[in-house]
Design a binder for these strands. Structure first.
Length: 557
RNA sequence: GCGGGCGUAGUUCAAUGGUAGAACGGUAGCCUUCCAAGCUACACACGAGGGUUCGAUUCCCUUCGCCCGCUCCA
């Protein structure tokens, strides 16, 4: 995120989220917890609307998908079978010279000559040289004369081993150059290198292909959060907080199939928390250690995975459009073979243009029959599907659209956030309007109801009535404090699509004929109408109170 | 995990080795006939812990968190 404007925008979104109650830092009064976030009153409505809409699209509007809610804790054997325990970890190595990190399994093997240095010898000060000769003798090396006698106080000879690989026949000079850099980077300027060994190696992955410098031993970062079940915290009690919701659906595939009266292709949908011990949570809620997933496991006949992968890609792209993320802002990445998970036979990543970069919202993977096969083998229980038409048993293939809830919420916030410069026509003064242009169906609050003036009881009474009428139908908000303009702007800032104002024309009848928001005519003198104010355009029109429920329901569902 | 930067109110910004201020925002009241008006009052901050000091928000250390880069990303 090198772009300062993008950083500024992100900062504003984070500040708005806190100020208006969308998202708070977890454990804030105790200094926070890296990678964990809480959703406040508005955030939870937004997130719930998003999840509800996904759930509805998956399980209600389709005949071929059923819902599911698996436990977060599962038998450890699940994670052994799925491969997570063995492979959900990254062995990382670090270049000793540049301190850059690499995946250990991605280091190209090197052949050549390795020069082993044991350390460096600092020039002693006058009168201390004999001490250094003694030290050198004790470690079995020879110290020759020093050109310079300047050295920092407190400096000691350094026994810091470092090895360098150079191409065969290239000679020590090249190695010494790299080693010198290594020691210089640690603050030692005037020294002699102590070479204590030379060896030839073949296909070694212990050296950085870029500069020949030694790499640190691989360190394993297990991305699953380990926990213990029961009172005794020994190895037999270990399990993990699930790193993805998918496995419960594979493990229960047979049970769900048996009770659902479904034939292939059919899917199991689940929304739930998952946990990953991310090395480096970053970018607000984007990379968190605790997060929520919306996952679909769609089981299909063998050989039909590729076509379903395409279908689901299109299906999901259309869905994002419906929650306010335009197709143009989503990048479809066809994950290349080398980057794909080992079980995957094809993966699309749907990525959104966040202010901090283009990042993944959802992965759609053709997982083959890997998962069912693993669980069938490890559990010893048959998980095959009996195909009535073909009269044969087989393990279905699965296509998995797996979306991040929190990431999608964040994308929606980023996409909705807008600042407008408004010019006041009377005074000519310019001001900034902040507005969240949420798609109405996911907006946390659908409409706000206002009496134009608080100190006119007749307006307040009707406003409260309208509020109570709408309340059972949708999330509405009532406010009577402050000037009407200020109330509108507050609603803009949290993305409420409609403002409803009860004014004097509600009581006395309208002064000018107009067309209602519903398209019906509004005649002069007509009572029981209100001002309907639109968030995005700030335009106002009249609508009969009686028409409000149907109108708003149609516009916000 | 490494390197760099930064932590004073919700936000933006002051000041200070000795009582922490403002603006905007917030709450309440008054007023107000449609886009952050006005008046009055109120609430809210030195991220945490330790050290130095008679006294630390200020100096030092540690830690936590945030931002940027690297790295990583089922």
């Amino acid at each position: 995120m090198a772009d300062p404007a993008a950083v500024a925008k992100m900062d504003k979104i984070v500040a708005l989220c806190k100020r208006r109650g969308f998202i708070f830092q977890s454990s804030e009064i105790y200094g926070g917890l890296n990678g964990a976030w809480d959703y406040g009153p508005l955030g939870v409505e937004l997130k719930r609307n998003l999840k509800d809409y996904w759930w509805k699209c998956m399980t209600q509007l389709r005949d071929d998908i059923v819902g599911f809610d698996g436990s977060i804790l599962m038998n450890r054997a699940v994670w052994k079978a799925s491969g997570h325990e063995a492979t959900f970890s990254d062995p990382l190595v670090e270049c000793m010279l540049t301190q850059k990190r690499y995946r250990a399994d991605q280091i190209e093997p090197q052949s050549g000559t390795v020069y082993h240095y044991e350390g460096i010898i600092l020039p002693p000060s006058e009168g201390e040289q004999h001490l250094y000769h003694e030290w050198a003798k004790s470690v079995g090396i020879t110290v020759k004369g020093f050109e310079s006698s300047s050295r920092p106080d407190n400096a000691k000879p350094l026994l810091l081993p470092f090895s360098v690989l150079v191409a065969k026949g290239k000679g020590e000079a090249a190695a010494a150059k790299v080693a010198s850099q290594f020691y210089k980077l640690r603050g030692y300027e005037d020294f002699k290198l102590n070479l204590y060994g030379v060896e030839e190696v073949e296909n070694s992955t212990k050296f950085n292909p870029e500069n020949g410098a030694e790499l640190s031993p691989p360190r394993i970062f297990n991305l699953m959060l380990k926990t213990y079940i029961g009172p005794v915290q020994d190895d037999s009690a270990i399990t993990y907080l699930r790193p993805e919701t998918a496995q419960a659906m594979f493990v229960q595939f047979k049970n769900v199939l048996d009770v659902s009266q479904k034939k292939l292709p059919f899917g199991i949908a689940q929304i739930g928390k998952a946990f990953r011990n991310e090395i480096n949570p970053r970018n607000f809620t984007f990379r968190s250690r605790e997060f929520e997933q919306m996952e679909l496991e769609f089981f299909v006949k063998p050989g039909t995975g590729p076509e379903w992968l395409e279908k689901w890609k299109e299906e999901r792209l259309a869905w994002y459009e419906e929650v306010g993320i335009p197709r143009a802002k989503i990048h479809v990445l066809t994950v290349p073979d080398k980057d794909r998970a080992f079980y995957s036979q094809g993966t699309y990543d749907l990525e959104y243009e966040f202010p901090f970069g283009v990042q993944e919202l959802e992965g759609i993977a053709h997982r083959g029959n890997y998962d069912l096969k693993q669980h069938q083998e490890h559990s010893g229980k048959p998980l095959e599907y009996f195909d009535e038409e073909l009269k044969q048993k087989y393990l279905p293939e699965v296509v998995e659209p797996s979306a991040g809830v929190d990431r999608t919420v964040l994308a929606i916030l980023c996409e909705a956030y807008a600042e407008e410069t408004i010019k006041d026509e009377e005074s000519g003064k310019e001001e900034t309007r902040v507005v969240l242009r949420f798609a109405p169906r996911i907006a946390p609050v659908k409409a706000a109801v206002f009496p134009l003036l608080k100190n006119k009881p007749e307006l307040v009474a009707i406003a409260k009535n309208v509020y109570k009428t709408l309340q059972p139908l949708m999330k509405v908000f009532y406010a009577d404090s402050a000037a009407i303009g200020r109330r509108y702007r507050r609603m803009d800032e949290v993305g409420t699509p409609f403002g409803i104002t009860i004014d004097f024309e509600t009581l006395e009848g309208v002064k000018e004929a107009s067309t209602s928001a519903t398209g019906a005519p509004i005649t002069v003198g007509q009572k029981e109408t209100v001002t309907l104010r639109h968030r995005d355009s700030m335009k106002q029109e009249r609508i009969a109170i009686a028409d409000l429920p149907a109108y708003l329901l149609a516009k916000t569902s």
